[in-house]
Each structure stands twice: as C-alpha cells, then as structure tokens.
Design a protein around this nucleic acid. Structure first.
Lengths: 225, 225
DNA sequence: ATGTATATCTTGACACTGTTCAGATTGCGG
DNA sequence: CCGCAATCTGAACAGTGTCAAGATATACAT
C-alpha cells in the first residue's frame, strides 16, 4: 500500500535479482552470511537477525528454511565437519608412513581450528545445534573416522585398542586447539603467535607419538628408575 | 508511596534479613546463584537476570558489585579454577610415583569436568569473562601449575621439555573432557555412561603414559617396521 | 545523638534478541 | 489462466544486558 518496494537497506549485498520479493537462493545466502559472521565475530557474535540482515531478508525468513537458529547453525556445522574431514584427508594423503600421516593430521586439525575459530567453536557447541540431527552426527563421525583410518594403520591389535588410540589422538589435538583458542598457549591472533603455537604443537606430537624406530622412553626423557 | 515493601517474590530464598532493602551478602549470594544456574542449566543457560532473581534482587543490582555479567562470571570462573587446582593437588597427593600422580590428576581433571559441566565450560569461555583479569589469569595458571609440578617429577631434562610435556598432558585431558561433554564418547548424564567414559579415559592415559618400566612401543602395539 | 556522605538497591527505560502468526507476494502445476 | 503451495514480510511478544536517576540504608565524623 504505502511502500510497495522498500527493502530495508542491503547492508552488504543482496546476491541475486534486485527487484525480488523472492530471494531464490536464501538457504545458501544465509549459510554464507552465518559463516561470515562466525569468521568476523566468533561463535558468541552470531545472531540470527544479523544473518537475515546480511542476506537482505526479514528476521522471520530463515524459519521457513531452517526452522530456527539451531537449524541454520546445524547446517553450518555440518559443512564445517565436511571441511575438517577434507583437511584431515588431504593432510594424510600428502605424507607417507602412518606416523607421518597422523602427525600431519594433528597439525591440520589445529590449523583448521586456528584459521576458522568461530566455525570450529560452533561445531562443538552442541547446545546451539540440533545435536541429534542425523546428518550432523554422520558428518562428525566421518571427520573422526579420518583419524581412525590412520590410527588403524599405526596401531596393530584389537579394534578396542585402535579405538583407544584414536580417542587419545583426537583428545590431544582437540584439547590443544581449544586451549590455544582460549589463549592458554599465548596470543593466537598475530602471525608470530600462530607460528609459535604450531611449533609447540609439533613438539607435543613428537613427544606423544615419537618416531617408532627410536626408544620412546629415551625420547621422552623419562627418568630412569 | 503506593507499595512501600513489595519484594518481587523470593523464587528460592532471600538468605538473610527478611525486611531488607539492603541485602548484606549480595556478592556471595549472586555467585552462589550463578553456580546453581550453571549446575542446573549449563553454561548456555546462565542469565544475569535469573541470577539476580534467585538472589532476590533487581536486575541492576549486580552491576554495583561486578560491573557487568562478565565480571560476575569471572568471579565464578576464578573459584572454579581454585576448586580445580584443589582437586588436582588432592588427587596427586593420594598417590606415590610421578606416573601414578599424573594418571590420578588426569582422571581428576575429567571427573571435575563431568561433575560440574556448566562451571567447567564457563571457565574456558573467554568471551563471556574478563579474559585479562589479573586474578583470573593467576587462578588459571595456578591450576596449570599443578600439572607442571608432577610433569617435572616425571620428566627429566630442560624446562622446555617439561613445558612441552605439560602442554601435552593438559591438552589430552582437556580435549577428552570437552569431547566427552559434547557426547562424542557416548552419553554422559547417566551413571553408566559416566563410568564408561572414565574407563575409556583410563585406557587413553595408559596408552599415552604407559608404565615406564615396560617398553612403551610394545605396550602401544606399534607395528614393527 | 545527629546529620551528612557513601554504599547499596530499585525503577524505568532502551536497544537488542529469537520466535510466532496472520497476511501479502511469488512461482508453479493444472 | 487459475488456484495452490512455497516464500517472505510486518507486527508483536517475552526475554535479555545495561544504563541513568532516584530512593534507601549504613557508616562515619562531629
């Protein structure tokens, strides 16, 4: 009636047809906007309204595609797990030998966390996701599976032993990434800090998974009893 | 004028003098209320207004004591770190031998996280705290120091080596705790799930820090090259 | 004891947030 | 070309954290 075509004000850009009541690719636009927010503001800075704003759409629009904020973030987390799995697979494929592959995967895991802190934190913020979503669970397991593949190569013995070793490897790199992101290992935002953290991780991995040819107890400097 | 003494409605209880405009122990009451919320609802469920409500006080009252919500949560986190440091110290004191002490500390760390998930998560949610608060940083370092003490006993060699080993130990147990809380190792709320997680952790610790007398590479089942 | 200063708490407001619902608009299959 | 389902808007609601002004209680000096 009074204002037939007054779009709020495209804060960044409305991606497709200019004169649209219908967006056309709103799902993708919302996911991209959410990832942008996570990259700029971190996990705590995400807001459904801000995502809608960046997609050039009303605050109620996302609900028709994702139900609620958790649904949208679940989709973002799924893609995050897929990207993480890809990074792990890629890192392993570039090395030879199980220990070198595992080592590279650990570095890639933390590298991913440091490069995409917001996405990474959100991927493990179950209360903000639809934690029992089948695709999310599947994507998370697929990422963990990348570790288990290499561990199975490295470790002989029963499946239970392999599972224990995989849990150990995942826990270590995950904990290191989390602690690094919270600044427990020094500043993380500067390039210098980033490098120092990665060399610290390198030392940690060499300590926990030493070269199998050398006697590990000597490598670790354990006191002789 | 119209309502001289209309207290909102003490949702749980107002701890001290009944007819008070002045609370008397508001700081402690707010901290206790916050810890209760974290215990019941988890870190995401915390709300400054709810904490004020439980303390029987207006939403603006906390600002006079803690500045803002971050200030209150910082105080809660400090006490959390102190409790964690105490648990670690206690666990180590009950064992003999560096490896046994470290093992017990790792178990105590995860036990603490599983028993107080909300507090634990909040302690590592830097964006919700005053991350550079001197007392917070000090409390966090003191907790980490409990690990370093035992690691120094276990590991000979330079200080850098000890620091690497401490980072490795902390990362492993922290990552395990975080992943466990996000359900990656199975259900955590049931008593059975809790026990199963702790036995998994036990295996992980035995895998990464095997008994020093036995050859570690054999303990881990590494394939012979 | 008395008055004044300071600490403490309330009231009311503001700008946000996520979500819901009725209605407007669009595109698509018949 | 028409009806229907999908899509999006507008307005509203209950909550949130925070702030400024004012009311009240305690403490302290005289």
């Amino acid at each position: 009636m009074t204002k037939p075509n007054a779009r709020a004000k495209p804060s960044h850009r409305v991606p497709k047809s200019e004169a649209g009541y219908h967006h056309g690719e709103l799902q993708e636009a919302l996911i991209a906007a959410s990832e942008a927010i996570l990259a700029e503001q971190g996990a705590e800075g995400f807001t459904l309204r801000e995502a809608a704003r960046r997609a050039g759409v009303s605050p109620a629009a996302p609900s028709h595609h994702f139900g609620n904020a958790q649904g949208l973030l679940t989709e973002v987390a799924i893609r995050g797990y897929e990207a993480l799995a890809g990074a792990l697979r890629d890192a392993a494929s570039r090395r030879q030998g199980a220990r070198e592959k595992l080592h590279a995967q650990g570095m890639a895991y933390v590298e991913f966390a440091l490069k995409h802190p917001g996405r990474f934190q959100m991927m493990f913020a179950n209360k903000r996701l639809v934690a029992d979503d089948a695709r999310l669970v599947q994507a998370s397991r697929a990422a963990g599976h990348e570790f288990e593949i290499i561990i199975a190569e490295l470790v002989g013995g029963t499946a239970k032993e392999a599972k224990t070793a995989a849990a150990a490897a995942w826990s270590t790199v995950h904990g290191f990434a989390k602690l690094a992101l919270e600044g427990k290992f020094g500043p993380v935002r500067s390039e210098a800090g980033h490098r120092e953290i990665m060399t610290t991780l390198n030392r940690v991995l060499n300590y926990l998974w030493p070269a199998s040819s050398a006697p590990p107890s000597a490598d670790r400097g354990l006191k002789a009893p």
